[in-house]
């Protein structure tokens, strides 16, 4: 479906319930979220590496809302062969062994079978951005805290471009992203969560992306207040 026809008109801000937040949002089941995230970056001129929807939920009504994992789409970066020209330091080899072990265990748990063998896909290098995306699934942010939490709190998009700016950020997630080779990270709030995009390329703010996000995720935010 085209984005416009698939998005219901202007729903009131909805906040999910911790544990299974998507259940309370008929417009944002996970299949729909996945399609929207894919549409957002597959059709973009820019080379986005991933997109994540951080879902707002309430633990109890006396506490601030929490942004937890809603869904994510990992596209990957174009130039994956860069690493092939890099030297394989002992640290790199140790880190790769750790990542492959974790992926092997996750594969085994998901599939319910023992995995192994030299041809197993997990024996392929686990890139920095794959790892960053994977560990993102374990993270959550209190409203006002961290890059997604700040975007949610301020109701304004946050767009950070450049290694230096990411490294100098007060937000741990921005510094972490920079450490895993990302050069651009963007957080755009919605009524019920935050859309985050990351790229290993330098991407500067465009109205086009903001508009696509607005259409796909049906936002009511001040696009000028960045």
């Amino acid at each position: 479906p085209t984005p416009r026809s698939s998005v219901s008109p202007a729903p009131a801000p909805v906040t999910g319930i911790a544990g299974d937040p998507l259940k309370s949002m008929p417009y944002f089941n996970q299949e729909s979220l996945q399609q929207r995230l894919q549409t957002l970056i597959d059709g973009a001129r820019e080379g986005w590496t991933y997109a994540i929807f951080w879902q707002s939920s309430v633990v109890d009504f006396a506490s601030p809302s929490v942004l937890g994992w809603g869904d994510g789409y990992y596209k990957g970066e174009e130039d994956k062969n860069k690493r092939k020209t890099a030297s394989f330091s002992p640290d790199f080899i140790t880190e790769q062994a750790h990542r492959k072990k974790v992926l092997r265990e996750l594969n085994s748990l998901i599939s319910g079978t023992q995995t192994g063998g030299e041809n197993d896909a997990v024996d392929e290098e686990v890139t920095d951005t794959e790892w960053f995306f994977l560990i993102s699934m374990t993270q959550s942010f209190v409203n006002g805290s961290g890059l997604p939490g700040l975007a949610m709190y301020s109701s304004s998009p946050i767009w950070v471009t450049g290694t230096e700016r990411l490294a100098a950020s007060h937000c741990e997630r921005a510094r972490q992203a920079q450490g895993f080779g990302l050069q651009t990270i963007v957080c755009i709030p919605s009524a019920n969560g935050v859309v985050e995009l990351g790229s290993t390329e330098l991407i500067f703010q465009t109205a086009d992306l903001m508009n696509k996000v607005k259409v796909l995720f049906n936002f009511n935010i001040d696009m000028g207040a960045t």
Partner: peptide, 30 residues
């Protein structure tokens, strides 16, 4: 994994499957 919230479990499954497809369906590092 069984204790993971459904959204994370679905995302993890999709990520692992797509990664496997990507690796097995493309010639490496052309």
């Amino acid at each position: 994994v069984a204790d993971l919230p459904i959204a994370r479990r679905n995302s993890l499954t999709r990520f692992l499957e797509k990664r496997k497809d990507r690796i097995t369906s493309t010639a490496p590092y052309q």
